[in-house]
Amino acid sequence: MRNGSGTFRRVKSRDLAYVALFAAIVAVLGLLPPVNVPGLPVPITAQTLGVMLAGSVLGAKRGGLSLLVFLALVAAGAPLLSGGRGGLAVFAGPTAGYLYSWPIAAFVIGLLTQLFWKRFNLAWALVANMIGGIVVIYAIGIPFTALFGDVSLWASFTGSFTFIPGDLVKAVAASVVAVAVRRAYPVIELPSRRATAG
């Protein structure tokens, strides 16, 4: 808004609402029971779908912040992770690296989505969600497990392999949803458009 004043940089109140509401969506996705998909070794939980959606619907900054807010509440003792987990203990566990990766993953997905925004379609959405939602998450989660549990990087890597098919399914789902939402209610504004839309 143009009428902003004072020493603080203004964040639009609506952005606060986006961040809080998406953090809430990630929490609600954690309430869904894991889905068994025929042919996949482990059931799929919906929470990382929220990570992908936050990035590809809200963009880098707001998407990343909504996951930070979500994790802050988990740390504060709200049992919001799938299966009703929460509290500080989950941040000390060996798989905590995956949690730490979520805000970064949402940020990267958002960044790529903004980059592709003009020609955003299912293919570009898939690229963004696979790089941000799979590569980034494993690139942080695997070494963390290795370090934390004193196990080799290779053991940690093979251990996490069973989850990759499920993550691919989620990346496709998130991309389909993101493209549909963009068509109906685009939230990401490009800098050039923002100048005119005010």
Partner: peptide, 17 residues
């Protein structure tokens, strides 16, 4: 997921106001 997200995004505008 799509109708839910759109409803939530619409609501965010009012929450901001």
């Amino acid at each position: 997921a799509v109708p839910l997200l759109i409803e939530v995004l619409r609501m965010a505008t009012t929450v901001g106001e």
